[in-house]
């Protein structure tokens, strides 16, 4: 089990006080689970990643893996930007990476089952520069897994991947996490995928504001929510409140969200022809609803994420 206790980090400034990136963050991640760490830009995700991977030294608190320093554990790391050498083949990248971990790998030492599972068996002798982004991600994962890690940390691994490649990579990640009994920490902006993780930790301005199973985080929203698009959310909200104590959330600029309710319930006080209603739909609550409810803003997406979407 990964145990992060009360860690804090401040980046020093040339003048004046530094920037506090993390403030007393504690979280746990269990073996065989994929734990997502979500948060908007500047929330402290990258700092947490750097502390976990040893790029930054701990200033406060502790990080232990199976009750020992993570330095003594094998850590597999997948970075947001590729860390592959484009001039080498996929196999050469894997072999060189293994040597950094003190392992000498021959072709026969690489499990054929793992290569098949990752879908890169036929790409081993291809130069990385000739592989697609999705394949490069798979080679990165192979690199990380072949050092037999106990802890796998991934920083925005879906960046630059199309929807299908994301889905495929995420499924693969879940499978290998269970199969190899890994403690997997997934740092991501992609909330629909985070929702499907075993646990979600939400960071906001360096503070952990939630850490639980996704279903539990969404308990307060009820089984369904109603989303209404309106040009005048304030007036519509006031109108709805005249018909009882409504669990209302101003979701986005022109969107209201009603928690713990269904279309039938809302239709009794507001029909679809109402002049303030542009669109109305019932749906399941999402992690993004939770995020906005807790932080007051939508999760900021990296430019690549928007392009990929």
């Amino acid at each position: 089990m990964l145990l992060v206790q009360n860690i804090a980090h401040t980046y020093a400034a040339r003048r004046g006080a530094g920037t506090r990136a993390l403030r007393g963050v504690s979280l746990t991640a269990a073996q065989g689970d994929v734990t997502a760490v979500v948060g908007s830009n500047g929330s402290g995700k990258t700092t947490l990643f750097r502390l976990l991977t040893g790029v930054l030294a701990l200033q406060q608190g502790s990080i232990t893996m199976h009750n020992a320093s993570p330095r003594n554990a094998r850590i597999g790391v997948v970075f947001q930007s590729p860390s592959l050498d484009p001039h080498l083949t996929a196999f050469e990248n894997i072999r060189h990476h293994a040597m950094l971990y003190g392992l000498r790998l021959g072709r026969d030492d690489i499990s054929a089952a793992l290569l098949d599972r990752l879908g890169i068996a036929d790409a081993l002798d291809t130069r990385v520069s000739a592989l697609s982004g999705g394949f490069q991600r798979r080679v990165e994962l192979a690199k990380a897994l072949l050092t037999k890690p106990e802890l796998l940390v991934l920083d925005e691994p879906f960046t630059g991947l199309d929807v299908d490649a994301r889905e495929s990579f995420f499924s693969l990640l879940r499978e290998v996490t269970v199969e190899h009994r890994l403690v997997t920490l997934l740092i991501t902006h992609v909330l629909p995928l985070a929702t499907r993780c075993d646990r979600v930790a939400v960071l906001e301005q360096g503070t952990l504001i939630a850490d639980d199973a996704p279903a539990r985080l969404l308990e307060d929203f009820g089984p369904t929510v109603v989303e209404i698009t309106t040009p005048d959310p304030a007036t519509l909200a006031a109108h709805l409140r005249t018909h009882g104590d409504r669990d209302l959330l101003h979701l986005r600029e022109q969107t209201l969200l009603l928690r713990n309710t269904g279309l039938r319930d809302v239709a009794s006080i507001l029909d679809a022809d109402h002049p303030l209603v542009q669109d109305i739909q019932a749906r399941r609550p999402t992690l993004e609803d939770f995020f906005i409810a807790r932080t007051g803003h939508a999760i900021a997406r990296a430019e690549e994420e928007l392009l990929a979407a």
Partner: peptide, 13 residues
């Protein structure tokens, strides 16, 4: 620039 160095730095090397 290519990101390769970060992989080296986070390894036990």
């Amino acid at each position: 620039k290519s990101g390769f160095l970060q992989g080296v730095i986070t390894s036990p090397a």
